[in-house]
């Protein structure tokens, strides 16, 4: 995959030793960090996340090879912190579908749809019963 044109620097412009810095001066991800790089074009199918069905087991978060599950830290009834899934980082999701496979709810809260499918459409047509395992 080629470097985006705007990042192709001349020989006298980059840090010596091919050193990359993860963060900028303000502590934010720097332009050297792959967080600022998109692999969305690897995908032919995408996972769609259905918040209404999700039980926040976080299996998708732990199993995602591309760190794509966006979580929100909340405090549960017993006063313990826990992560709630709030969405998918589509810049970095490669559409492997591991998340769908590990999703344990009877009707999965994650399903694969064609890349061109509108998410709202997908959610509107969510299956009522779990499909048979393939």
């Amino acid at each position: 995959m080629a470097t985006p044109t705007e990042r192709l620097e001349n020989w006298d412009e980059f840090e010596i030793g091919a050193v990359l810095k993860s963060f900028d001066e303000n502590g934010n991800y720097s332009r050297d960090h792959s967080k600022t790089y998109k692999v969305a074009d690897w995908r032919v199918e995408k996972p769609v996340f259905n918040r209404d069905i999700c039980i926040d087991c976080d299996m998708c978060w732990v199993a995602c090879p591309d760190s794509c599950f966006i979580v929100e830290e909340v405090v549960n009834k017993r006063g313990k912190k826990q992560a709630n899934i709030v969405g998918i980082d589509y810049d970095h999701c490669k559409g492997c579908a591991v998340c769908v496979e590990v999703c344990p709810t009877p009707i999965k809260s994650l399903l694969m749809f064609p890349e061109f499918e509108d998410n709202n459409n997908a959610l509107a047509n969510w299956p009522k019963k779990e499909k048979k395992d393939k």
């Binding site: 995959m1 960090h33 792959s34 967080k35 600022t36 790089y37 998109k38 692999v39 926040d56 087991c57 976080d58 299996m59 978060w61 732990v62 090879p65 591309d66 760190s67 794509c68 599950f69 979580v71 830290e73 549960n76 313990k80 912190k81 826990q82 992560a83 980082d89 810049d91 970095h92 999701c93």
Partner: peptide
């Protein structure tokens, strides 16, 4: 896992695996 998932990731997406 609910608790573990609050850990800020230290290895991020955008890699080419």
């Amino acid at each position: 896992l609910k608790e573990f998932a609050t850990t800020p990731d230290r290895f991020q997406g955008g890699h080419r695996l």
